[in-house]
Amino acid sequence: MTDPIAAAFIDNPAFIPYLAAGDPGPFDEPPSADDAVAQTSAYIDALVAGGADIVELGLPHSEPIADGPTIQQASVRALEAGMTPDRFFELVDDLPADLPIVAMTYYNMVYRYGGSPGVDEFIEAAAAAGVDGIIVPDLPVEESDPLCAAARDAGVHIIFIAAPTTTDERLAAVMQRCSGYLYVQARLGTTGSQTDVSDQTRSSLGRVRSFETNFERDPLPKAVGFGVSSGEQAADIVAAGADGVIVGSALIDEITGAGTDRARAERQLEALATELAAGTERGAARRQSGPERT
C-alpha cells in the first residue's frame, strides 16, 4: 500500500489545512464535547470539499507556546468544550480512511498520554486511530530520539520544522530524522497571518534543496507554513518551489469570523480552502512553465 502522505504529494503540490480539533467556533455556552467533535468533522468535510490533500489536526494543549493568538483562542475553545486526547483519537478514527491525517500537539501531551510518562502509548493510540504523521513543535531534534524510534516501529511519520534561524548543521540533524514531509517555517514568530512570505520561503527552500543534493538524501516533500492566508500567497510559495502549502490561522479566522453561525463558518471555510487549493495548483503551473524556480 502506498504511504498516504507520500501519495498526497504525487503529481501535484499538496494543500494542507490545519484546524484545532474540538474547536466548535465561538460560543456563549460551551457545547457538549460530542457536538464539538461533530462540528470539527463537519469543518474537515468542508476542507476536503475545498480540495484538502492532507489535514493537520491540532490536539489542544493548555500552553501553546508556538502558536499565535488565533490558534491559542481556538485551543482554549476546544479545551472548554471538553476536548481530550481520547476524543481526538476517536475523531480521527471516524474520518475517511483515505484522508491523510497529521496530528500536531505539544510534547507534554505525547509524554503524558495513557497516564504514565513516556511516548509509546501515544504512538500506539495514534497509529491505531489512523494518524499518519505527528508534528511536535516544542520537540527539537535533540530530544526526539524516543519519539522517532517509537514512531518508526509503528509506521507513523514524525514531521520536523525547519525555521529561518535553523543553521546548516541543525538542518542536517533535522533532515536525518524527518519523515513524511518537512515543515518549512516561512518566517519567524508564532503561527498567524502575514502578508509577504515569498522571499524567505525561496531562500529556505534553496537551502534545503542544496542540502539534499550535497548529502544525497532522498528528497522529502517540503511544505511551507506560518503566515499563509491567500490563494495568491499559496501560488507564490509553490511557484518558489514548495511541494505543499500549510494554512491554519487564516482558516480558523473564517470560523471565528462567522460567530456562532456554524453553517456560515462551514461555507466560508470551504470557500477559502477552494481558493487556497486553486492557488496551490496555479503555482504548480507557473513553476512548470517558467524560470521562477531558483
Binding site: Y107, L139, P140, F160, P164, T165, T166
Partner: peptide, 14 residues
C-alpha cells in the same frame, strides 16, 4: 532538564 523549545529558538539557545 533538557531543551524542549521550538526549532526556531534552538540556534539562540545554542
Amino acid at each position: 532538564g533538557g531543551q524542549f523549545v521550538p526549532e526556531a529558538l534552538m540556534p539562540a539557545i545554542e
